[in-house]
Every structure is written in structure tokens, then in C-alpha cells.
Design a binder for these strands. Structure first.
Lengths: 192, 192
DNA sequence: TGTACATCAGTGAACGCGCGTTCACTGATGTAC
DNA sequence: TGTACATCAGTGAACGCGCGTTCACTGATGTAC
């Protein structure tokens, strides 16, 4: 059942997207190729018509998730009234909506410790997009912060990722909320 | 080859300690029972003389790692000149030594995103020890911070865990160092 | 204290299972004329 | 534009392998007398 070139490209994209979601939801090691292909609406045998290995889809899914989130955060910030972009970004990142949807959210928060053990190519990719996110924060830092803007943005990004990760560990939703709220309050009060 | 009760208790402890190290180094899903028993100096068959399942050793290893780190951080802080405890704690947490030794370091930084998908019992255990760590920070916060000390301590803990996790993702050691340094500088300047 | 027997920690082979990967097959798509 | 044939996306069975788990066996330890 050969498919048209257009359909083939679409299928490949669906696999990458499904992988990006499944990996963030269940972890990379815990997601099998059969799960992944099932989520894309296919059987597992077809996988190797699009990728040479699981490693390749890990890299492409990570790149997709990171780029997609990067663009979404940037568009969201740009859409805010001038001067409020950073506060809005922090609120969105630490929102219950983000907390509840790891499969569509920040890759670093969903897979941070697993990414630390990924291949060098994947880690390079993730770090580059992390720096892009830091750059986005830096751009919206108030002009009163003229010293070490880059470092301040890095610290903020670290706090955001850490808070969301830790909130998701808490089995008690009230504690999760408290972690997110505390991070939001103190990041905005001291660093924004 | 039956062992004495004393030897048996020692063996069990060695398995838990080996598991705590192996899990933090290579991830929980990626560590097989054979790896784990090998690291404890035994063959895999003996595992079930001590534990009913892998899940049980995950919980005990997590509890062990969290408690051991908690005690070590507390002892380290107590040993500092009064007034400098928190700064010393932050420096130690974000040190290259901690960065280079995930197997002996903070469980949340080494396994944060994997812990978010662990069993409820394991997550409860991890969250409780996280709160103990937050309490330690809170105790050493300067008296000038009389408002929302708990929330401030939570935000600090989040930033610490996030920075170490992200530093370990960076394949470039210079970038890793920059992430740790930025977090240290800004956490100490604004929050300590 | 010494002897006889039950217990059980640890070994290493084996179990079923799901993993990543390969392959023969299919039939619709793409290409050549 | 129509026809004949080559291509190849997707299916589903099969591969070897390592996983978590079980088990028969061993011999030193613990217990009973």
C-alpha cells in the first residue's frame, strides 16, 4: 500500500509529533516503538521506513518539542502588552495548565534528568534551545537590570524548570500548587 | 551458602546503597536488577531473598538517597560559621563536585523527571524529603526575610535543582559551569 | 558442649515477555514510453 | 493520455536479546535436644 509523497511526509511528521508527546508524557526509555507508532495511528513495522533507529526519532522529537515550545512561548510573550511580557511568561510557565500537560509542555521539565543521560547530539540540541529560551527571557528583562542580564535570565530559567519538575513529583496537588506559586512569586518579585 | 543474620543485613544494605548510586547515575528504568546486584558484588538471583520486587528496591533506594543527602547537607550547614550556612549550602549544591557525582548527589536533580512518573508511594517519600530540605534552607534564611520564608525557601530549592539538572544536560562543560555560576550568583544576591 | 537436622542466603539456569530491529509480502503510487 | 512496470509505505510475523522473576540446588548458619 504505497502512499503518495505528500502522505509519506505527513506520516513522518505525525510520528515525530507523537514521539514528542509520548516521550514527554511517559519518558523516553519507557516509551516503546510500538506505543509510539500506535499513538501515530500505525503498526510498529513501518517505523524503519522513516527512521534508521529509535535514537534518530529521539533526536527529531526532542528538536521538534523544543522548537515548538520555543516558538509558542515567544509568540505568547510578543502578544502581551509591552512591559508585561516576562511576568506573563513566568505565569504561563508555572500555570496549572502547563503542570497538567507535560506531553505538550517544556521538554526540560518533562525529561530533564533523562536528557542529562541522552546522546551528546541530543543534549547539544537541548542546550541550544535552552539558551534560546534564556535569550527570550533576557530580552524582556526590565531595563533596570543592566548588569549580568544573561546570568539573571539563566537563573530564572533554572528556577522555572526546577519548580515545574518538583511540582510534578509531589503526589499532593496542593503542595504542587504551592511550589509553583512560591516560584512565581519570588521569581517575579526579585528577578523580573 | 547460608549467611549469618549479621551478614544478611549487611548484604541488604549494600544492595540498597548500590541501587541508590546506580539509579542516580544511569536512571531507574535503565538500571537492570543484574547491573544493580553486580554493583553490590553479587549475582542477580539473590535479589528476591531481600526484596519482593524492583519497585520495592526503588522505594528503599530513593528513601536512602534522600535521607543520606538530607543528613549530609544538614551536617555541612551546621559546620559553617553562623550566618554563612546558607551561602555555603548553595555553593556546595551548585559545586562542580556535586555536578560531577550524580551517583552520590541530590536525587531530585539526578532523577527529577523520572521521579515525577514513579509510584505514588515513592513520590510521597521524595516530596517529604524535599520539604525537609526546604525547611533546612528556611532555617538559615537571614532574619531580614520575615515574610513568606517558606515560599522563598521553596523557590530557592527549585532554582538549585533546576540549575544542576540543566547543567548536566549541557554537553559543553563551560556552559554547565556558567549555568551553575549564574544560579549561585543570583540566588545568593536576591534570596539568601 | 556436642550432635542432628532444619533453615535459608546466594548461585546460576530457566521462564515468559516485550523490546528494537528485520523481513516477506501487499497494493497503490510514480515513472517510462 | 494510456499502458506496463518498478518503486516503496505500511502490515504483521519473526528474530535475538535482555528484562524482571522463578526455581532447584548448595552448604554454611541457626536451632533443638
Amino acid at each position: 500500500m504505497r502512499k503518495s509523497r505528500h502522505d509519506t511526509a505527513g506520516t513522518r511528521e505525525r510520528i515525530v509529533q507523537a514521539a514528542a508527546t509520548q516521550f514527554r508524557q511517559h519518558g523516553i526509555a519507557a516509551t516503546g516503538l510500538a506505543d509510539l507508532m500506535g499513538a501515530a495511528g500505525m503498526t510498529h513495522g513501518g517505523f524503519y521506513k522513516h527512521f534508521v533507529s529509535k535514537e534518530q526519532v529521539i533526536q527529531e522529537a526532542a528538536a521538534y518539542a523544543l522548537a515548538e515550545r520555543g516558538h509558542a512561548f515567544e509568540a505568547y510573550a510578543q502578544a502581551q502588552p509591552p512591559g508585561t511580557e516576562l511576568a506573563a511568561l513566568v505565569r504561563a510557565y508555572l500555570s496549572m495548565d502547563h503542570y497538567n500537560n507535560p506531553g505538550a509542555g517544556c521538554l526540560m521539565a518533562a525529561l530533564g534528568s533523562e536528557m542529562a543521560r541522552a546522546s551528546e547530539a541530543t543534549r547539544a540540541l537541548a542546550s541550544a534551545q535552552f539558551l534560546a529560551f534564556v535569550g527570550l527571557i533576557e530580552r524582556f528583562l526590565g531595563p533596570q537590570h543592566d548588569h549580568d542580564r544573561h546570568g539573571r535570565a539563566m537563573a530564572m530559567a533554572s528556577a522555572l524548570v526546577g519548580a515545574l519538575t518538583l511540582a510534578r513529583v509531589a503526589p499532593d496537588p496542593a503542595l504542587a500548587r504551592q511550589i509553583l506559586d512560591s516560584a512565581r512569586t519570588h521569581i517575579l518579585a526579585s528577578w523580573a
